[in-house]
């Protein structure tokens, strides 16, 4: 009978993402509910020892290190083979991965290879009588689904920013090298074009500033970007302004865009179409700035500021700068 929880960490472009620490928290909590051991594994093309040491300090009993230059540019096919061998050899029952593009592909390969039930974008975990239940949102973020696993093994993709980031602890875990032979990969990485420098990824941002129709025109995003810069936030947008070409699609928040779960979401001139709310209504604090006090976003907001974004946002930027300078 398989036993134990394994957090799988996939560095991207040679760096470890803070969401890896969230996977450690989720995995450790799950192992705790089940009274079993918790380990982690890092699959890396380089700097593996450094990453493994960092992870080992934050909760897992052991960190397996799978390192090979073949993993420098992520390939689900290359990574899945050594991970499957490790999971089978050590007998792990549960695998926790962060819900990123890479994480999804890899988790799908592991689910099929191990006949393990799978759930994605999970933000809550519990276990009773040895059975795991994962909470995730359905129907455009309107309903909560409790998914019960009955398969011997389970693959759980956690939603970024849904679990705390594990902190370094007094007694670190042990780093153990693992069989690192890659699987043969058919889909091949060719090249990468990074997004503009200084842009923060929406999906893992703790703060998001979004703009909508209320900005009046595409120029309004200069002000939104400045507010985002001052707050250390990612820039989001409503579908309406993306479709109007005011800002690229990668900034779209909502059903057909990205789902975000930040501590702070500032909606500037966004009325709150249901499709937009689907992507952000789980934010801890929602600030809405809008001339229409009765629009859905103002009603949803934790802090509603009635008024014109083009008047309030510049003042907000000035106040935040003053506060920073103080």
């Amino acid at each position: 009978m398989a036993k134990g929880t394994l957090a799988v960490v996939l560095p991207i472009r040679g760096s470890l993402q803070p969401s890896a620490y969230e996977a450690l928290t989720a995995g450790k909590a799950l192992a705790g509910f089940l009274g079993e051991s918790f380990d982690a594994v890092v699959v890396s093309g380089s700097r593996g020892a450094e990453f493994a040491k960092d992870l080992a300090a934050r909760g897992p009993g052991r960190v397996h290190l799978i390192e090979n230059p073949a993993f420098e540019n992520f390939s689900d096919e290359a990574c899945a083979a050594p991970l499957k061998r490790l999971i089978e050899k050590e007998g792990y029952a549960r695998v926790v991965v962060v819900s990123t593009i890479n994480g999804r592909l890899l988790a799908a390969r592991l689910s099929a290879a191990l006949n393990a039930g799978i759930a994605a974008d999970v933000w809550g975990l519990s276990a009773e009588g040895g059975r795991v239940t994962a909470k995730r949102s359905l129907y455009g973020g309107n309903l909560i689904g409790d998914f019960a696993f009955a398969s011997e093994r389970q693959v759980i993709l956690i939603q970024p920013l849904s679990f705390e980031r594990a902190q370094p602890q007094a007694s670190p875990g042990q780093v153990v090298p693992a069989d690192s032979a890659p699987g043969s990969a058919r889909a091949q990485f060719v090249s990468f074009e990074p997004q503009p420098a200084g842009e923060i990824d929406l999906g893992s941002a703790e703060r998001v500033v979004s703009g909508g129709r209320g900005l009046g025109n595409a120029d309004g995003f200069k002000m939104i970007r400045e507010l985002a810069r001052v707050l250390g936030a990612a820039v989001g947008a409503s579908r309406a302004v993306v479709d109007s070409g005011w800002i690229p699609y990668r900034h779209q928040v909502g059903l057909t865009g990205r789902t975000v779960r930040p501590k702070l979401y500032v909606a500037c001139g966004i009325s709150g179409q249901i499709q937009h709310l689907a992507g952000m209504s789980s934010a801890a604090n929602i600030v809405a700035i809008n001339t229409d006090p009765d629009c859905p976003m103002m009603k949803l907001a934790s802090i509603a500021v009635p008024g014109d974004v083009n008047e309030i946002v510049p003042q907000l930027i000035a106040e935040l700068k003053k506060r920073k300078g103080a």
Partner: peptide
Amino acid sequence: KAVSLAKLSPFPPR
């Protein structure tokens, strides 16, 4: 049965 929806519930109001 590998993984199934056991319960569906509305989000508590904010």
